[in-house]
Design a protein around this nucleic acid. Sequence first.
DNA 1: GGCGTTGACAGGTACGTTTCTGCATGATCG
DNA 2: CGATCATGCAGAAACGTACCTGTCAACGCC
Lengths: 360, 360
Amino acid sequence: MSRAQTRGSRQGRAGIRDVAAAAGVSITTVSDALNGKGRLPDATRRHVREVADRLGYRPSAAARTLRTGKSGLIGLTVTTYGDEPFTFTEFAYFAEMARAATSAALARGYALVILPATSRHDVWSNVALDGTVVIDPSDHDPVVTELVRQGLPVVSDGRPAGTLPVTAWVDNDHEAAVLDLLDHLADAGARRIGLLTGTTTDTYTRLSTTAYLNWCERVGQDPVYEAYPAHDPCAGAVAADRLLARPDRPDAVYGLFDPNGTDLLAAARRYGLRVPDDLLLVCCSESTVYATTEPPITTLSLKPRRIGTAVVQLLIDAIEGIDTDGPVEQVIPTELIVRTSSQRRSPRTTVSPPRSPAKD
Amino acid sequence: MSRAQTRGSRQGRAGIRDVAAAAGVSITTVSDALNGKGRLPDATRRHVREVADRLGYRPSAAARTLRTGKSGLIGLTVTTYGDEPFTFTEFAYFAEMARAATSAALARGYALVILPATSRHDVWSNVALDGTVVIDPSDHDPVVTELVRQGLPVVSDGRPAGTLPVTAWVDNDHEAAVLDLLDHLADAGARRIGLLTGTTTDTYTRLSTTAYLNWCERVGQDPVYEAYPAHDPCAGAVAADRLLARPDRPDAVYGLFDPNGTDLLAAARRYGLRVPDDLLLVCCSESTVYATTEPPITTLSLKPRRIGTAVVQLLIDAIEGIDTDGPVEQVIPTELIVRTSSQRRSPRTTVSPPRSPAKD
DNA sequence: GGCGTTGACAGGTACGTTTCTGCATGATCG
DNA sequence: CGATCATGCAGAAACGTACCTGTCAACGCC
C-alpha cells in the first residue's frame, strides 16, 4: 500500500496535503495562501482557497496549537463548593460576568473554557490554555501559582491577597463602595445599620466587612451583624431572620449577597416591619428583580459586565505580548441604584417603571 | 550547538524527552509509566513518576490531542442575540444548566468551551472539540449540520426541529407541562387564563403556545395572549401591562419566561389587582426569588440541572463510542412548584418558609 | 540444550500544521 | 552583459506525544 493511497483513502476530514495535491501546489503554498502570509499572487491564493472550500478543508486545531504554541483558549476559573462549580449566590454576578467575558473573548478570536479551581491538575493539564481568568482567588491559590510557574498569564477578578503573582487584576473599590452606601443610609435617617455578611474569607467579604466595621467605629455605632456561609442558599434566610430578631435590632440593613434582599424583605414582613418606614434595605446584587419587588430595593451593582470585559482584555493583551512590567491594576467603579427601600420619606407613591435594559 | 544542548536549554516546560533522559529510560517507558500502559515493573513506574514530578513535567495537551484525536473538550453552544451570548431571560435557566453540565463533564474528565451559535466557523475550527452540546437549535442550524458532517457527536437541549441530524436530544414534555399547569389554574377557579409568550420561533415557545391554544380550544375558552421579543428585558414588563389592560382581562396568567412573574406582579399592583384573589399567577422560572415575593409565586421548573447532566452524559457516551443506532431521546419531567399565587383560597396565612436548597 | 514465551525496554514513525531555508526564474541595474 | 534582487514556490524540519515494532535477556519445557 503506497503512501498516496493511505492519504487518499483517509476517511474523515481532508488535510492540508489533500488540498495541496488537489490544487497542484505545495503544502507551503496552501498554508501561506490560507493564512494570508508569504508572497503569493492573488490568482494562486484564490485558487487554493477555492479548492480548500470545495474539499471542505478545516485546519486541525490540535496541529496548529502544537506548532504555534497558541490554542486560542482562555480558562475561566470558578470557585467550587462541593462538587458544583460556582455558588448559587453568585449566579447573577457570575452569569453577567461570564457573558461579558465570553463576548469580549470571542470578539478577539478566543474562546472560554470553564474550569474549576480545584488543585486536581489532571483536568488543567488536559487542555492547552493561552492564559487564565481567575475569579476571586484565595490567598495562596495553588492553581494560580502553578499556572504562573508554567509562564501562563493569569488575570484575576478580585484583588489578589498576599503575594499572589498575577499578571493583572481587576476589582471594584469595595471599601469605598460600602462606606458610600452606609453614608447613603445614614443620610436617609438610619441610626443603627446592620450587616448581613459571610463566613468565608474571600477578599470581597473581608474588605466589605472591615469597611463596615471601620465605618461603625468612625461614627461611633456598635456593629450589628450576622455572618453565614454564603454558599448555602438556606442559611441566608435564617441569618436575615436572626438579624431582625436581635434585641438591638437595626433600623437599616445592608446585605452583602444577592439573595439577601428578598431574604430580608421576607424577614421584615414576618416581624411586621415596613420598608422603608421601619427598616431601610440595601443589598449587593445584579438581579433586576429588585426593581419590581414591593417595595423596590436599592442595590449596589459591581458592574460585572465591565469587569468581565476588562479582565479578558487585560489577559489577551498579556497573551499577545503587549507587555508591561509589574501587575496591571484596574478599578471598576460600582453603582448604587437607589430605589424606594433606602429612602425614608418616599417622595410620592410612583408607579414603578419597567425594568431598565441594563445597558453596560 | 548540539541537539542535547538545545533540549537542555529549552526554557519553559520540560518535555517527555527530558524526563526520559533524567530517568535514564526511553520515551516509550515514560509514556507507558505515566499512562499506566505497557508492561513495566512497579519500581520503574514509580521511578519515572518521581522524576517527572521533580521536573514538574506536564504533558502537552496539544500534542496529546494531535496524537490521540481526543481533546477532552466539549462545546457548549448558546444562542446569541446581537453580540452577546445567551439571553437575559434565560439567565437562571442557562446558569443552572451550564453549572450542572460543567460539573457532569468535569466528573468524566471533560471541560466545557462556551461557543456562540454563529455560523462564523473561524471560531469553531480554532478549537478541537470531541463533541458539542447545542441549546435549542434552530430548524436547519448550519453549525449543527457542519459539526455532524465532520463526524462530531451533537446533543441538543431541546427537541430538534425538522430533520436536524443530532446524535441525541434531551427535553421536557412542554405540551404536557403546559396542559397540566392550565388544569391546575382551572382547578383553582380560573375562568379565563391568559398567556404571556414570545415572538421567537424556538421550539420551547412554539410548543408551549400551541399547547395553550389547544387547551383553550378543548375547554372552549377564547385565547388571551400577548407576545413580545423575549430577549428584550424591557418588553416583558410592557407586554405584561398590556395583557392586564385588555378589555377581556384574564383572571389568571401564565408567563413563559423567567422575569414574567415580577413583571405581572408589578402590573397587577398598578391595576389594583390582588394576587391570588383577583388574579392567579404562574410563570416558568428557575429563580428562587419567587419563593419570597409578596405573595410567593407558583413556578414551573424545567429542571435545568437534570437536563444539563443528561445532555453531557449522552454526549460523552457518544464520544466514547457507546454507540446506539438512531437518535437517543430523553424526556425530563417538569415540576410545578405550587405557591400562594395560584391558590384562590389560601388555606391559611402561613409564614413563608426559607427557600428550599433546590437539591436536584 | 534448542525453542517458544514472556517481560522490559528502545527505536522509530505518524499525527497535521507552520515556517525556515533554499532554489529556480525573470526583472533591474550599473 | 553579468551581478543583484525580488518573486513564487517547494522541501524539510520541527512541535511533543502515543503506539507499533522490534530486540535482548531470562525462563520454563520436552
